[in-house]
Simulated scan of single mutants.
Amino acid sequence: MVIPVHDVNPVRRTPYVTYALIAVNVLVFLTTPGMAGSASGGDHLAQLCHLQAFVDRYAAVPRELIHQELPRLVPTGAVGVGAHGPGCVVAPPGYHKNPVLSVFTAMFLHGSWLHLLGNMLFLLIFGNNVEDRMGHIRYFLFYVVCGYAAGYGFALLNDGSGDPLIGASGAIAGVLGAYLVLYPRARVWVLVPFLVFLPLRLPAWLVLGFWFGLQAVYSSGHGVSGAGTVAYAAHVVGFVAGMLLAWPLKPGTPPPPEPRRLLFGRQARPRQVW
């Protein structure tokens, strides 16, 4: 797996929406009940119960999206003692959950620091150019539509699942798909783990095509045990949705400029020869 760190593709306008999405995702993560303990390595039962109650309320659940089957009992966030020892208390929900709206709220929830930072890195690198090409408002609507396509696409493939779906990955996958369509020849600096991290400057079509290929393989259950806990199918659907939505903009998108003298993604200062 390669780690992108920078692209050689300047923008004409400040990507306010991309910056705002990153800020909101970080803020929501920091204020999510139970996440403070995850940062320090704590795993106290009370924190876990609060986190489970919060996620069950605001995450997207495939069974709820497709069949409108809301659970009769949900975690309350409290800790109780039962026949098998201490655990999280469950009770009838004291709130009304809208499954359609839960797809939107789930886009801003993350399960760990690694989950959050990985998503935000991809959004920061590739989102600014897509926003620059689409404009602020259209880009935000595009981001949300890709997130919904990924959420419902995953739910259709797993309609009986009661596991919560969280994360901005589906929407960001749409951004990656749009970037691939609009700027396939842009150069991307990546770190390739090979004994040490080797910096390489590769074309976007290779970086993003490789990423999409991995997601497609993993979504089929190959390469990982039972596809793990990552919703790879949501990444695939979001990526394809982003490509399709961005395709009409491709003819009017100029190729990215390619500076002649590059030093790890930045233009090197001209050297004087004496």
Rank of each mutant, 00 (worst) to 15 (best):
Y218E: 10
V237I: 09
Y232E: 00
A241V: 10
T229C: 08
T229M: 12
A231K: 14
M243W: 06
F239V: 07
H235M: 13
Y232D: 01
F197K: 09
S220M: 13
T229S: 11
G226N: 06
A234L: 11
F197E: 14
R201T: 12
G209F: 06
Y218H: 15
A204K: 01
R201K: 11
L208R: 01
V236W: 01
F239H: 01
A216L: 14
A204Y: 04
G209M: 13
V230Y: 09
F239N: 02
A234R: 04
W205C: 13
R201D: 12
W205D: 01
L202Y: 03
G238I: 06
A241P: 14
G226T: 05
H235S: 14
F210M: 11
H235F: 12
F210I: 11
V237G: 09
V224Q: 13
A204D: 01
A216Q: 05
G228S: 10
L214R: 11
S220W: 10
S220T: 14
V217K: 06
A233G: 15
V230L: 08
V207C: 06
A216F: 15
G226S: 05
M243D: 01
V217C: 05
L208M: 07
L208S: 00
A227Q: 14
L200Q: 14
G228P: 13
Y232T: 10
G223V: 07
L206Y: 02
L206Q: 06
W211H: 06
A233M: 12
S219G: 11
G238W: 01
A227H: 12
L198N: 09
G238P: 02
A234W: 07
P203H: 08
A204S: 09
G242C: 10
L206D: 00
V236L: 04
P199Y: 03
L202P: 00
A231H: 13
A231W: 09
A227M: 07
G213M: 08
W205E: 04
G226P: 02
W211S: 04
A241C: 15
V236M: 03
F197T: 10
T229W: 13
G226C: 02
H235D: 15
V224C: 12
